[in-house]
Write a protein that binds this DNA or RNA. Structure first.
Lengths: 222, 222
DNA sequence: CACTTTTTTACGGAAAACCGTAAAAACACT
DNA sequence: AGTGTTTTTACGGTTTTCCGTAAAAAAGTG
């Protein structure tokens, strides 16, 4: 089994639970814990430099903001940064976010070894995942794996999200049109924006803009 | 210190962390853990019946859905049910939801003793909260307490919430007016609904209905 | 290039939201 | 009952959303 692992998790309740499980149930001697991505990256570098590198990284995706100014504000950013230099360190994502799209992408691009969903059996899943990764395998929590097959792979891109965000911030459709025109974002006409919103209303089963942003918020899209 | 505590938490990572902390750092001998509100209620009843009642309940607010059919689908429901019979059991809410409104209401109505936010220092807060509650005091996490000062907690009543809910479900203002008229809810005229929404827009700093429901969702009002 | 297909834009009319002002009704108080 | 206050309702005008249809532009194809 691994003997030196780094856990990146902002919620201390969760971090405590995870590291305790690893020590008690998997017998991992050195479990280090940090609540910030920046700090995690520094720890990894230092360990490398000291010739005592970590053998596994377990990280959350989203992190609550803080007083501290941060370079790396998400698990995603942390992973990208690590992969710039180190292609081999096994990484496990452990998150509440049901995001099959990015799970797929990251697994396929060999950027992560496992995607664990913090559900009712999150800890059990994580234990399995660690064992699988140690044996050189991949692991994806059931719920995510199911969704990945079902083509729920969303047809919603960044453009749509930004549209929804602006709406939720109180901008009118025409204001957004002007904004996009100025910023050189295309499509930018009022018509196109209406059309895009109609498609979104279709996908998210909404009658009007109000319900649209409500549903988008429920799905965690914005 | 308490000697017998029940923890209701669907995410096993969190539940594990909390119960470990309580055993190790607070020396609480009996920490029982359940992932379902229904089961929690049964456990409380059984313990009472066996003359070995729990001295403290720690519960989450939101619970992921499951295959199981549930009577009590939220921490809120669980608390209400408990308070029907038992007014004395100390209850601590421990959640990620930043909902100062309900924190206030529940604290004021004497329904809970503490509201702990699962943030970076959630576990630390929880420890403090348990100690405070044991000494007969209340406890509310800093972030929530700060927001509670924001005065709107009081100016928003059930009528407003139902208004916002209907909006978020895609009803137009006139549809809501008709609905309220039929149901005999007053005020029910389109004008009054507009007026009420304008007040809400003022309080929640929104330009239009879209931003209004977005903000209401952010605040956990709906 | 000529052609089809898709994407973006334009426009017009109906519905709804938005924003005043003001009357009517309900309430409170003496 | 009479007065003042608050709440509810009514209504008109303007803006924005909503929902078609259709032209213009861009992209894809043989």
């Amino acid at each position: 089994m691994f003997t030196k692992v780094l856990v990146v998790e902002d919620l201390d309740t969760v971090g405590y639970g995870i590291s305790m499980m690893m020590k008690k149930e998997l017998g991992i001697a050195r479990v280090e814990l940090t609540q910030y991505c920046d700090e995690a990256y520094l720890k990894l570098q230092k360990a490398q430099h000291d010739n005592q590198p970590f053998q596994l990284l377990i990280t959350d995706l989203s992190f609550a903001q803080d007083h501290r100014p941060l370079q790396l504000d998400s698990g995603q950013a942390l992973i990208e940064k690590i992969r710039d230099k180190d292609k081999d360190l096994p990484i496990i994502i452990c998150t509440v976010e049901e995001n099959p799209t990015m799970a797929n992408q990251f697994i396929k691009a060999n950027k992560i070894s496992a995607y664990v969903l913090k559900g009712r059996d999150g800890l059990k899943d994580l234990k399995e995942a660690i064992q699988a990764v140690f044996s050189g395998h991949r692991f994806v929590s059931k719920k995510i794996a199911q969704q990945s097959n079902g083509q729920f792979a969303f047809e919603i891109e960044d453009y749509d999200v930004s549209l929804l965000l602006h709406l939720s911030h109180g901008l009118s459709q025409s204001q957004i049109a002007r904004l996009f025109t100025n910023k050189g974002i295309s499509p930018s006409s009022l018509s196109s924006i209406e059309k895009r919103l109609n498609r979104l209303k279709d996908v998210l089963k909404a009658n009007n803009n109000v319900q649209l942003v409500a549903n988008a918020k429920d799905l965690g899209l914005i």
